[in-house]
Design a protein around this nucleic acid. Structure first.
Length: 754
DNA sequence: GTATTATCTAAGTCT
DNA sequence: TAGATAATAC
């Protein structure tokens, strides 16, 4: 591909060829932004820049991967593998592993995901004896994250009367203390949370001039995608790295900024001209993605935002169909109409399943859609929500892996010390945590040297703990000799997790077992693909915490209807797009409507949703939606009013479908009552056992094998065997209703039946 | 210490 | 509605 530059339009070409100096590209949706970045990097390599000297920051791992492949085909070599390209978190965790010692970490540090962070905060709140209704884990975690992103350390916090006062008013006076403890505990565990990855990168560059210089020299060219969604820390990191060469190219679109909740700051775009006064700027305004009806519709929406950089997005594409706006009775009907429309288009116009995307504001909305698609046998894949790596069974297994790489990892230890159950419960764990806090060492250090820390733990427990440490240590010694798969397989089998999941034959149990196998398959692929020195479990684990569903795509996912939040759809495009749930308080979200800023961000989010569509767009809202356990009335979103009606059409589908849905089946299905029944039975039982409690317990000496007995809950049964002495006397009894049970006679209230 | 059951409570977007 | 926690039974 020698004439690669010929594939670009005039403004794209200018942006690609302007290689030196600061450059800002403002790119409307579908204007070939990714194309510019890709070709620009390819052009740099082709013109003799070493790929090792290029840093490219993308918004997702997937985007990085695709871009890398694309570059490889353009430059016709595997040179692209040497690029430092990935997300902020991915690229800088790599840098931090290399330079870890400088900031008193080791290169095997763990990355805590949000679940880990919350779990840690929860234990801190508990240890401090605080009221968990006042100190809500989610809120605390959010606040800590926010402070970190604004460079506010626990000390800064204590020194700031305004910040402290906010929490005093909310009666959370211990917040500063929690924040401080949280940081200490992360550090003690050799762990960084998502915010630390960025924060520590900044500290590394700020406090070690030699390291800063090293990377400034290394990264002669820096490119940043989705610049409008970078936060303050990210902005400062880039600014530092680019300060020497000033060969920095940022690409973004202020109209697509949708991550301010994560600290993203549109101001970064505006600051660009202040930081680099001799910057050049290009605007990409021609849209190649969508029909003119869609482009115009999007434009008619976004003009309602006051704050924006002036630009005119236009297209040469054909007019296309009008966008259909569909009113539905409720969320179920909305799902049904989406499914039916997909089904019809698939059969009438031969549209592939993968060409459809259903986008929504909140993950919870996927349920109704899922149900309707399943009823029609339409293959679909949900992205986001609970990601594969966030599933309990997967996290448990990963916790074993984490422990053998970094045994200080407290959250990993807490997950597995008693999974599968080995008699090390909450009480023991609490003692361990207290000891580790008192001596300022990790829990692993405590359980590895129990005698040193003089714990009040009985002998049996000491033995169990020692078995646990031996088990983990046996994995640790092997981690460098075995490839990831061999070690992982061994851990799965010898830890007892395999056995535990294999024996669970419930529907959920089987699915958990399958997920475990899927995880192992992934590790197997990794072991086989990577070169020998890089195929260890440690290497596999390095960025698992940073992976999302999109990075875990399987082959059979290829041709499926895609369901995702609008946030997750950023940067993607699909021929047929459904945006559902356009209702007040849902989209725009209730929480975002307090100020103009929030509302404008919601509007940009809708703008992003609309502009994902290439050929056709369907918008829908429901008059009633199942929320908070009951149906709530909904009003159509104000955003629908703002759209220019020239480009839309009210749906007739909705009206015809509504009639079809007047079928008794649906109504009956909704008025099911098993819930009440199941609530009723246990109450009844409780009453029975309560009356029985007044009966004096049977004297155990009268019980013998062969006797017929009656149990308050299990009914009539026959004693098969009696074992143990006095207080530990147990009986195996065969009950007519529930089968064989072993009961401790001390507790079981048995009556002898004649 | 563990497993089961009852009760409570919260419900946003992501690395 | 579902996930988390408290209460209960053994």
């Amino acid at each position: 591909m020698t004439n690669y530059l010929e594939q670009l339009n005039q403004s794209q070409l200018s942006a690609v060829k302007q290689v030196d100096g600061p450059l800002m590209v403002i790119a409307g949706p579908g204007s070939g932004k990714t194309r510019v970045l890709t070709y620009r990097i390819a052009h740099l390599i082709k013109s003799g820049t070493d790929a090792f000297n290029i840093l490219a920051l993308t918004f997702t791992n997937k985007a990085a991967k695709e871009m890398r492949n694309r570059i490889e085909t353009i430059v016709e070599s595997s040179e692209a593998r040497n690029l430092w390209m990935g997300t902020f978190h991915g690229v800088f965790s790599r840098m931090l592993r290399i330079e870890a010692e400088k900031i008193n970490y080791t290169s095997n540090f763990t990355i805590y995901d949000t679940t880990d962070s919350k779990s840690l905060i929860k234990s801190i709140i508990k240890e401090m004896g605080l009221d968990k209704d006042i100190y809500k884990v989610g809120l605390i975690q959010n606040r800590i994250s926010g402070l970190k992103n604004n460079f506010i350390t626990p000390k800064d916090y204590e020194n700031s009367p305004e910040l402290v006062q906010t929490d005093t008013i909310a009666k959370r006076t211990a917040f500063g203390n929690i924040y401080q403890k949280y940081n200490q505990r992360c550090f003690k565990s050799g762990a960084m949370d998502f915010d630390d990855l960025l924060l520590n990168t900044y500290h590394l560059l700020n406090e070690f001039p030699d390291i800063l210089y090293k990377y400034q020299n290394k990264f002669q060219y820096i490119l940043v995608d989705e610049y409008q969604d970078t936060n303050h820390v990210q902005y400062l990191i880039i600014k530092k790295l680019a300060a020497l060469n000033e060969n920095i190219c940022v690409v973004g679109d202020d109209a697509q900024s949708i991550y301010s909740f994560r600290g993203a700051n549109i101001q970064n775009i505006l600051n660009f001209k202040v930081d680099y006064p001799d910057f050049k700027t290009f605007k990409l305004e021609q849209n190649y993605r969508s029909t003119s009806n869609i482009v115009n519709l999007a434009n008619s929406l976004i003009i309602h935002n006051k704050k924006q950089i002036e630009k005119q997005v236009w297209t040469k594409n054909q007019e296309g169909e009008k966008t259909i706006v569909c009113k539905t009775l409720n969320d179920n009907e909305e799902g049904r109409i989406v499914a039916n429309t997909i089904f019809e288009l698939h059969h009438k116009e031969n549209v592939h399943w993968k060409d459809y995307a259903v986008l929504y504001r909140t993950n919870a909305q996927s349920r109704a859609l899922e149900e309707s698609l399943r009823k029609k046998n339409i293959p679909y894949k949900i992205y986001g929500g609970l990601s594969f790596y966030a599933r309990k069974e997967v996290k448990d297994m990963l916790a074993y892996f984490r422990m053998c790489i970094n045994p200080k990892d407290e959250e990993a230890l807490k997950r597995i010390i008693n999974y599968p159950t080995r008699g090390l419960g909450a009480t023991t764990l609490q003692k361990l945590i207290i000891a580790s806090n008192n001596h300022d060492v990790s829990i692993w250090e405590v359980i590895s040297n129990l005698e040193k820390y003089e714990l009040k733990i009985n002998k049996g427990t000491v033995e169990k703990l020692s078995q646990f440490t031996t088990l983990i240590s046996s994995y640790m010694v092997q981690k460098d000799n075995l490839d990831a798969y061999t070690l992982a397989e061994q851990i799965v089998k010898t830890s007892g997790v395999f056995y535990d999941l294999y024996n669970d034959k419930t529907v959920e149990g089987v699915s958990r077992f399958e997920n475990l196998q899927e995880l192992l398959n992934g590790i197997k692929d990794f072991s086989e693909k990577e070169e020998e020195e890089n195929n260890t479990l440690e290497y596999f684990m390095q960025d698992v915490a940073l992976l999302t569903d999109a990075d875990n795509e399987k082959e059979d996912d290829y041709n499926k209807v895609i369901l995702m939040t609008i946030h997750a759809a950023k940067g993607l495009e699909f021929p047929y797009v459904f945006v559902v749930g356009l209702e007040e308080n849902l989209f725009p979200s209730m929480m975002a409507m307090e100020g103009r800023e929030g509302l404008e961000e919601e509007r940009r989010l809708f703008y992003v949703a609309i502009t994902r569509a290439e050929k056709r767009l369907f918008l829908s809202y429901a008059l009633s939606r199942f929320k908070w356990g009951q149906y709530t009335d909904c009003k159509p979103s104000r955003f629908l009013e703002e759209l220019n009606k020239i480009f839309t059409k009210q749906s007739e589908i909705a009206l015809t479908q509504k009639k079809k849905n007047r079928n008794p089946y649906q109504i009956f299905a909704k008025t099911k009552t098993p819930k009440k029944k199941s609530n009723f039975i246990p109450k009844n039982l409780k009453r029975v056992s309560a009356t029985n409690a007044t009966v004096t317990p049977t004297k155990t000496e009268h019980l013998q094998v062969g006797l017929k007995v009656k149990h308050s809950r299990f009914g009539s049964g026959k004693i098969l065997k009696i074992e143990g002495e006095d207080a530990n006397k147990k009986a195996i009894i065969f009950f007519e209703a529930v089968g064989q049970k072993m009961l401790l006679l001390k507790f079981a209230k048995l009556e002898i039946e004649k």
